[in-house]
Structure formats: C-alpha cells, structure tokens
Computed example of a mutant assay.
Amino acid sequence: MDSHKRRTMKYLPLVIALLCAGAASAQDRIWRCGSEFINDVNIARQRGCKDTGLGKLGGSTSMKLSEVTVPVDDDGHFRVRGTVNGQPAVFLVDTGATFVGISDELARRANLLGGAAVQFRTANGVRDSRVVQGVNVMAGSLGVPDGVAVAVGTIGLGDDVLLGQSFLSHFEITMNGKQMVIRNRIQ
C-alpha cells in the first residue's frame, strides 16, 4: 500500500465518525480560527478551523463565542473585511457613527431599495440619504440576526463602508493602541 493510501486509511475512522455525528451537533459547536472564535460550521470548515469542544452540553448552549480581532492600520484606523447583503465591503470602524454608512454604488449592487429619506451632517457636509432597515451586514464572522439599519449615500464611492453603532451596539468592543476586538456579548 502506498503512503497516500495509508494516510487516507488512517483518517477514515475520523471522517466516518464526523459524518455520523450529524450536522445539528456541528452547528452547536464553537470553532477557533486563529485568534477568532466562530459558531458557524460552514465558515469553520472553509477555513480549516479547530473545534474548541465548547458548545451544546446537556441540551443547552454553554456559551456562544464569536469575535473578530481588528489590527490598527498604519493610518491609525481599524478596518475589517465583510459583506453588506452579500456584497464584499471593507469596513472602517467608526464608533461615533450612528449607522452603517454605505455608498449609493454599493447599495445598488447589494439591491438595497426603499428606505426612509433623511439628511445627515457628515464630515463632508450635509448629504441627502435614506435609511434602510434589516440589512444583512457581516463584519468578519459577526452578524446581527435581524439585520441592521444602513444609511445609503452617506459616504463616497466603492466598497468602503462606515461600521457604525447600528451594528456595533450589538457587540462588546475592547481596544488598545494595537487592536480592537469585537465580540458577541455572552448571554
């Protein structure tokens, strides 16, 4: 038997055990991806994350850990990759912003229609905008189940997004001069 077959046979019992465990139990587990904890089995599998052994115990969730560590950029800002309604975005974390703010261009790609017409005073002056409720926003592996309010047209062009309090207020945030950690609140 060649070395490839021996390696494959070595892991076969583990693969069978994992398949027999069922998807429901995998969904209840906590995974570690580097310095980040997530509870999404699909993301964990894609990234090759390690199971922490935390999760469902005795029918109730022991804890749900999920966090994103955001290093400070050379310009002193915190940026994290994510999505708005499934469209890729780069978030500039702005703890002083009321809403998640996106460009009209990104709103078109993300199919964000309607919303309440408002005017905002921004760093670039007064801007006509609209606020769309219940938008699916993901910052790293973090999201808000019912979506968040997004202000459309408050920033310039492209995929840059302000990550404001309509998203951040759902999480615990700690930071120092080198990094920011955004994590689920332990319930």
Results as ranks from 00 to 15, higher is better:
residue 114 G to D: 14
residue 161 V to Y: 02
residue 37 F to I: 13
residue 108 R to N: 05
residue 56 K to R: 14
residue 66 S to F: 03
residue 31 W to V: 05
residue 33 C to N: 09
residue 151 A to I: 06
residue 47 R to A: 08
residue 69 T to S: 11
residue 138 M to R: 10
residue 66 S to Q: 09
residue 81 R to E: 03
residue 156 G to W: 02
residue 49 C to Q: 01
residue 127 R to W: 02
residue 105 E to Y: 03
residue 126 V to T: 10
residue 144 V to T: 08
residue 91 F to P: 12
residue 58 G to Y: 04
residue 157 L to C: 12
residue 138 M to H: 11
residue 140 G to D: 08
residue 40 D to P: 06
residue 150 V to P: 03
residue 89 A to C: 07
residue 25 S to T: 11
residue 147 G to S: 10
residue 29 R to K: 12
residue 61 T to P: 00
residue 144 V to G: 06
residue 63 M to W: 06
residue 82 G to K: 00
residue 144 V to E: 08
residue 49 C to G: 05
residue 56 K to M: 15
residue 49 C to W: 00
residue 99 F to P: 01
residue 80 V to L: 12
residue 44 A to Y: 00
residue 54 L to A: 11
residue 157 L to N: 14
residue 129 S to T: 12
residue 47 R to G: 05
residue 79 R to M: 15
residue 115 G to A: 07
residue 24 A to N: 10
residue 92 L to T: 11
residue 54 L to D: 06
residue 110 A to D: 06
residue 37 F to G: 07
residue 60 S to G: 07
residue 81 R to L: 06
residue 113 L to G: 07
residue 127 R to H: 05
residue 160 D to W: 01
residue 73 D to K: 08
residue 141 S to L: 06
residue 123 A to F: 10
residue 33 C to A: 14
residue 121 R to Q: 14
residue 35 S to N: 12
residue 43 I to H: 04
residue 59 G to I: 03
residue 70 V to P: 03
residue 144 V to W: 08
residue 91 F to V: 15
residue 135 V to Q: 01
residue 109 R to T: 09
residue 90 V to P: 04
residue 97 A to N: 07
residue 83 T to F: 03
residue 97 A to R: 01
residue 86 G to N: 04
residue 149 A to G: 06
